[in-house]
Design a binder for these strands. Structure first.
Lengths: 205, 205
DNA sequence: CGATTTTGATGACACTGTGTCACTTCACTA
DNA sequence: TAGTGAAGTGACACAGTGTCATCAAAATCG
């Protein structure tokens, strides 16, 4: 997390800084990004950077979190819209994600993130639970889920289902970028896999 | 890929070098590893390192590939053993992987790899297809698979099923490391999820 | 053989980038 | 208006990378 100093900054300066960071992380993946470029582009001195952030990673994960925040917030409402159907909600989330695809820099940033996924990056995308107090949020989702339709014994299994669906969805994203699939191809693959998840890999007797 | 010079090296020297690399990559994740440490430990001059490898990453992915080679080779025989059942074969692969868990350095190396997974690392684990000529290998697997039991329309769907199963299996590994689960907990989670995959997330009518 | 060419070994060096720290400036309050 | 704590600043020490000119060894050839 950025230091308090960063949050005390005037909004404009904060925005400039984040834009500079976005630009640099769009240019190259985390490992290749340089603080020098960011501060040059944001026109702040080196010392200030360390006044605001622990290091490059600190800024990076903060930015990633910000960029995915809205997308994540959306899940609850999608769940309501689809009458508690987790898979359908995730499918629409996937579509939205593809459609939204914001400005070019943000797109490149995401691509870099996807191709150099760390455990932390993956969590940023798949932990739809982890907003604010994670516990409560998970409970909220659990309550919303339509259990009639699901092949589960108890509430704990909902967690596994979420896990599976988000993991496979995420993998499909990474693939879209790494294999440079068109939206159509990506969606075709994704739908096929979601279908297999719903009805099972094994044939029904 | 390492340069030819590396493969021309006497076996002993090559081994020493790989051990030194293993040690360094066990100590810290790729981004933190230093060539200086590796060459000091392997007692070779800096220039020689660049005679053998393009850079740190080159060595890293080569080492990763070597360490997982045998584990990957195993899949075909597991598939035969389980009469072409992909899920059962993958389940046994997972168990083997947990049980084998070799010397401490190799274990730490894997842990670092898992927690800082790049798209490339994930592929190293999940591309059970990609040994030697990928095309042939995939066909070999496709031929072996027992399609009677699977919920598929054509051979292309087998690919999606492999994708799903290996992705979820891989995610379970990462989780074992990141949440420091015991073997028992890890296996319980994993079995639960494999079961959901087999029979579907949706309830059978 | 000795000469020549090719291949490999070596470490000093230029360069890039990080994080720190002593010092300055600013904003606010007593 | 002096005093205090927070924020700003950039020079610097340090760590790491990749290259290159040079040397050594081995293979090839007339």
């Amino acid at each position: 997390m950025p230091k308090q100093t960063f949050f005390n900054l005037p909004a404009q300066k904060r925005k400039t800084l984040m834009e500079a960071a976005g630009k640099e992380f769009a240019r190259v993946p985390l490992s290749g990004a340089s603080i020098a470029n960011i501060i040059k582009s944001a026109k702040i001195p080196r010392g200030s950077f360390y006044q605001y952030f622990e290091n490059k990673e600190d800024l990076y994960y903060f930015l990633l979190g910000e960029q995915t925040k809205e997308r994540k917030m959306n899940f609850i409402s999608l769940l309501k819209k689809h009458n508690g159907d987790i898979v359908e909600a995730t499918i629409e989330m996937y579509y939205d994600f593809l459609k939204q695809m914001p400005d070019e820099d943000e797109q490149k940033f995401l691509k870099n993130a996807m191709l150099h996924v760390t455990h932390k990056v993956e969590n940023a995308f798949t932990d739809v639970f982890d907003i604010g107090d994670g516990k409560e949020h998970l409970e909220e989702i659990t309550a919303l889920v339509n259990k009639e339709r699901l092949n589960i014994r108890d509430d704990k299994d909902i967690f596994h289902i979420m896990q599976i669906v988000t993991t496979v969805a995420f993998r499909n994203f990474v693939e879209k970028f790494s294999k440079e699939l068109s939206d159509e191809e990506a969606i075709e693959n994704f739908n096929k896999e979601m279908d297999l998840l719903k009805h099972g890999l094994y044939r029904r007797e």
